[in-house]
Design a protein around this nucleic acid. Structure first.
Lengths: 339, 339
DNA sequence: ACGCTACACGAAAACGGTTTCGTGTTAATA
DNA sequence: TATTAACACGAAACCGTTTTCGTGTAGCGT
């Protein structure tokens, strides 16, 4: 096993001081051509690479950014990660990912682990647990320590930091408008409880679009699921008791599941019922019929988050100015609506 | 901004030495009750947390494990990550994820970044680029440095290290057997070029099952796609020229896409054509009809990988014994086959 | 009063770098 | 010849811990 070579090793071998080696490898003017060449050749020969940890300790910069997300199996989050990775790597940063699994406790633990020197800044999306608890002390602690934080998608007003979100209300609005434009009158909404900030906003957009048209808001056409898991019984019961000609769902899974349920009842999509979902993922592209969806542009969101974070990380003086970037969702029209 | 407090700060404040503080916080016998209590109280009050970087430098252990995967948007990989996360976090390790994006170069760069002290060991799955290049020097370097490595799913025989794979041949075999048992005679296989180790194995299983039955292997019933992206024209052309009564695909996307193509041609699934895919992901659960698939148990794979890695990381003497764990895939029967 | 042992604590090295500030040597200048 | 500046390099501090090895003091026995 050839163990990693250090500056000290090179210094000993070449009978110079550690400082000289360090400077030579940085091509410092201070060192003579001869010595530099000798040292650089030796270093290359033995494949010297500086120890990241030592460098981190010295300049108090890890070149790591911590990402805390509720779930990694969701398409939306993975696209965001991909965007973060893309930008961060290009800037020479590593990405440390922790998943909170929608749990407040895991979120806190993860942040504490990372905050003790492992990372230069956080990018995160709140767990549903955290949003319903409404407890953001762990975020407050981090920002008070001067660690930059950017929140994306699931954010909170209780914390002053950079944020990047999509205009979920607009998304709900656009989708509903589209359904109304098709002539749909009985438009159902399948969503989650309001504690999830994004669901709330999407619902608001739905309501806004309805109120702008002559359609009346019918609360019984709104199904609020308490978790993000499929509650088959609730959904089945909902469609058994409600007559609908269009359905808007706040995520992909709800959409596809509901769609199949109606298909099984003999209804045709989109002739009898139109469907629009949120998230332009695999399911949307490959479901049958393919889904019309509100696309959230997760990758872009990731890139912007990373950019905002790294800017803060690398800025010398801590400016106390925070911005919230709002991305516009777009409607991707496929075959679950009438075109 | 209240900056992080260090041992030195506490020592200065309490007028003791740094060593005393360090020992007191570790509850060392060496320190008197009084002093310990005083120091511990002070530390708690100011929320002292040791600096991970300094600790890493000191004991040459980072408690980070590096994960390098080809893609993060694929369901299978995210489930593996979830498994890794689960086990690793329980053992007090962080997970640093880098995605190679199926590129050899990015894989090399990522590994080099991480190998310089950032992590205690690697868990990785080879990029397709790497597998087709057949160049594993970056892996060799890492193992020669004594950094533990476990390869999962996409592995190579050229490197001696722990591995965890699923028996892909068995998967292909089971699936094909199932189709044969249904009485299917013209079973197509849609796969990728052989450089992807897993595709190769799955194809072998398909061939083995055919040869065991009275069915003859018909090369024209095998479609090899050169990439993992959907090549619509190739697939369309394949089904225009081949008559089939069953299709086995090496991934979810191929399956769902092909299935829809045949549906559009008026064929009924599974009455006219049966379908089996690999990967028990969202698409399989929510496609129409729902897919019969070979489940790869990614989460389990992740857990086992993490377990094997951490065991090596924490074992004092480097044993040069490597094991390959082979997981058995299982058939999840749904509605795209006849039951 | 002397020596001894515990006890409680501190000094210092070490991890692997970076960086500031000398300092000895040489060569140019007056 | 004496002074000085440029050059090339080294010593040492520092980042925040851990850990080994002293060491001063108090209390004990004789």
């Amino acid at each position: 096993m050839k163990t990693k070579i250090t500056l000290k090793d090179i210094a000993r071998e070449l009978e110079v001081s550690i400082s000289t080696v360090s400077k030579a490898l940085k091509n410092s003017e201070e060192i003579s051509r001869d010595t530099k060449e000798k040292i650089q050749a030796f270093a290359k020969l033995y494949n010297y690479k500086p120890n990241n940890i030592a460098i981190s300790l010295k300049n108090k910069r890890t070149k790591n950014i911590g990402v805390v997300i509720p779930d990694i199996v969701h398409h939306f989050f993975t696209t965001v990660i991909r965007g973060i990775e893309k930008y961060a790597n290009a800037k020479g940063y590593n990405v440390i990912i922790c998943v909170s699994n929608e749990s407040f406790d895991k979120e806190v633990i993860n942040m504490e682990m990372l905050a003790n020197g492992s990372i230069d800044g956080f990018i995160m999306s709140l767990s549903s647990d955290t949003q319903s608890k409404n407890d953001y002390n762990h975020l407050k602690e981090v920002t008070e320590q001067g660690i930059p934080l950017v929140l994306f998608d699931r954010v909170t007003n209780d914390i002053d930091c950079d944020k990047v979100i999509i205009d979920d209300q607009l998304g709900g609005y656009l989708a509903t408008k589209k359904l109304i434009a098709e002539g749909r009158k009985k438009i159902a909404l399948i969503t989650t409880d309001d504690y999830l900030s994004v669901s709330k906003a999407r619902s608001d957009g739905y309501i806004k679009a309805l109120s702008e048209s002559s359609l009346e808001l019918d609360e019984s056409k709104i199904l609020k699921l308490s978790t993000m898991e499929i509650e088959e019984a609730s959904i089945r019961n909902f469609f058994d008791t409600q007559e609908v000609d269009a359905v808007l769902c706040v995520n992909e899974v709800f959409t596809v599941f509901s769609m199949r349920l109606l298909q099984e009842k003999g209804l045709r999509i989109p002739e009898d019922v139109s469907f629009i979902g949120f998230t332009n993922g695999l399911l949307a592209k490959f479901s049958n019929p393919r889904l019309t969806v509100v696309a959230q542009h997760g990758e872009k969101m990731g890139e912007i988050s990373a950019q905002m974070l790294i800017e803060k990380v690398e800025s010398e003086h801590e400016e106390e100015t925070f911005q919230t970037k709002i991305l516009e969702p777009t409607l991707v029209v496929r075959d679950s609506t009438i075109n």
